[in-house]
């Protein structure tokens, strides 16, 4: 379960203060499927960064699965990112010199999992995402859809409870986009919380709940908001 309470985030851009998030409070139950929507510059990505512990709020509290994570130190936050959160990006962010296999294995490598265990877990994951015969390919030898599937495999290899997706279909053609969306939704069905930033209304409609951001505020939403 995710609980954001009164989150504020201010950036300095040059001399100017930019209020990226203003008093944002959101609650997401485990297993929810939420789309965060809004025009560009509305604070969607800032919100996602806070949710993913890539950024710290200036004030407010963030609770993940009952732990107050906004106050944890760097190292503890890294551990949370490693074990509880999976990221999927618009531009995939695969390490170009590593093969698909090694990209997926990265989180396992970082957490010190033994090579033979890595072998089985990564192979299983690649097969599950239909990439069994692409393990040795480098990212530049893969299509966009394949790259995103590698990225999703990497995001889920540690069995996180939350998947954060930042425009996961933004850089894909329509059919690959739908394919990727279906994969993410399948993962959601299996119980992972899926939070997706998108400005594509069609994508937004697929989710069970939408949160609309304007000017750093949550302006409203549709669907089953179970927050108090």
């Amino acid at each position: 379960m995710i609980q954001l309470r009164h989150i504020e985030r201010v950036f300095m851009v040059g001399e100017e203060e930019v209020h990226a998030l203003r008093d944002v409070s959101i609650t997401a139950e485990a297993g929810e499927y939420i789309a965060i929507m809004g025009p560009s510059g509305s604070g969607k990505s800032s919100l996602l960064n806070i949710l993913g512990l890539l950024d710290r709020p200036d004030s407010g509290a963030y609770e993940l699965d009952g732990t107050l994570v906004s106050n944890l130190d760097e190292k503890q936050q890294a551990a949370i990112r490693m074990h509880k959160i999976g990221f999927v990006f618009q531009f995939f962010h695969l390490v170009p010199r590593l093969s698909a296999f090694d990209n997926v294995a990265l989180p396992l490598v970082l957490s010190g999992v033994k090579p033979d265990e890595r072998q089985t877990r990564v192979s299983t994951a690649l097969a599950a995402f239909g990439l069994g015969n692409r393990a040795r390919h480098r990212p530049d030898q893969l299509s966009g859809g394949q790259r995103q599937r590698v990225a999703i495999a990497r995001a889920t290899i540690m069995q996180p409870s939350v998947i954060l997706a930042d425009e996961p279909t933004g850089n894909l053609d329509r059919s690959s986009g739908i394919e990727v969306a279906e994969i993410l939704e399948e993962l959601n069905h299996q119980g992972m919380t899926l939070i997706m930033v998108t400005h594509d209304p069609d994508m937004g409609k697929r989710s069970r709940r939408q949160i609309l951001m304007v000017d750093g505020r949550v302006e409203g939403g549709k669907g089953e908001d179970r927050s108090p």
């Binding site: 993913g52 890539l54 760097e74 190292k75 890294a78 551990a79 949370i80 990112r81 490693m82 074990h83 990221f87 990006f89 531009f91 962010h93 390490v95 990265l106 989180p107 970082l110 957490s111 990497r154 995001a155 540690m158």
Partner: peptide, 14 residues
């Protein structure tokens, strides 16, 4: 970008 990614998937500063 690679460093950002490593951090996102849980690499610590150390």
């Amino acid at each position: 970008a690679e460093i950002g990614l490593l951090k996102a998937i849980g690499a610590s500063r150390g």
